[in-house]
């Protein structure tokens, strides 16, 4: 299964990643970073499409794709 990693201290809680995820698996986590922003979490099966990371203005997301998953644009 593919997965995303949030660099939580970079996150500003904007939720653009949540809106961008075509699988609808990202959500606010209820946890806050040291700047006071609510950070996001993965809650479901990730396709590794990187849409969330493409939209993140703070480059707070890294995407690891399972190589068995479909290859596509990064």
């Amino acid at each position: 299964m593919s997965r995303v990693v949030f660099l939580e201290e970079r996150c500003k809680g904007c939720r653009l990643c949540v809106a961008a995820c075509p699988c609808g698996i990202l959500r606010p986590s209820g946890r806050f970073n040291r700047h006071g922003y609510e950070v996001m979490e993965q809650a479901g099966t990730c396709s590794g499409c990187a849409s969330c990371a493409v939209m993140c203005p703070d480059v707070a997301i890294r995407v690891f794709r399972s190589v068995k998953a479909k290859e596509g644009a990064a």
């Binding site: 990693v5 590794g48 990371a53 480059v59 997301i61 890294r62 995407v63």
Partner: peptide
């Protein structure tokens, strides 16, 4: 934990990085 999570596991490839 973050450092560990940022290492690709077997069968994984990092497709979005800075």
């Amino acid at each position: 934990a973050l450092e560990a999570a940022l290492r690709p596991a077997d069968g994984e490839k990092c497709v979005f990085d800075t």
